[in-house]
Amino acid sequence: MATDTTAAADAASGAGMPQLDITTYSNQIFWLVVTLVVIYFVLSRVALPRIAAVLAERQGTITNDIAAAEDLKAKAAEAEEAYNKALADARAEAQKIIAETKADIKAELDEAVAKADAEIAAKTAEGDKKIAEIREGALESVKEVAKDTAQEVVAAMGGKADARSVTAAVNARMKE
């Protein structure tokens, strides 16, 4: 059928369908075999072992990393535990110190209070004594002044005041 071919290409291949042109088969098959052999050797000698190694290595790395992560996690937990323990210890220590200090302060305070009380009591007593003395002194002065005043008054009124009787009179009046 393909006799009235128009294109030069058709004349070269000899048939309408290049796939059915038997003269090119040997060429294609030869180069196909060469190609496949080359690809096979490249793949089986270089590429596939390399990719397999890379994949295996990655798997190994991932496994290692997971193990390392587990390790680190355990370490972190340990550290946390230690930290908590230290914290608790420190807290207990602090409580102890606080209690001790409180006790010390209380003792000191009590002592100071007692001392102050004693001092205050002593000072009060002293004050009382001084007041009594002053009162005594004042009474004496009053007697003296009264005696003098009485003698003067008596003298001024023209009488002669006997010192003894004045004193007796003053003493009697003061006792009232």
Binding site: A7, A9, A12, S13, P18, Q19, D21, N27
Partner: peptide, 10 residues
């Protein structure tokens, strides 16, 4: 139209 020309072995 040369739909099959692309398959020619040259």
């Amino acid at each position: 139209f040369h739909p099959m020309d692309q398959f020619i072995v040259k």
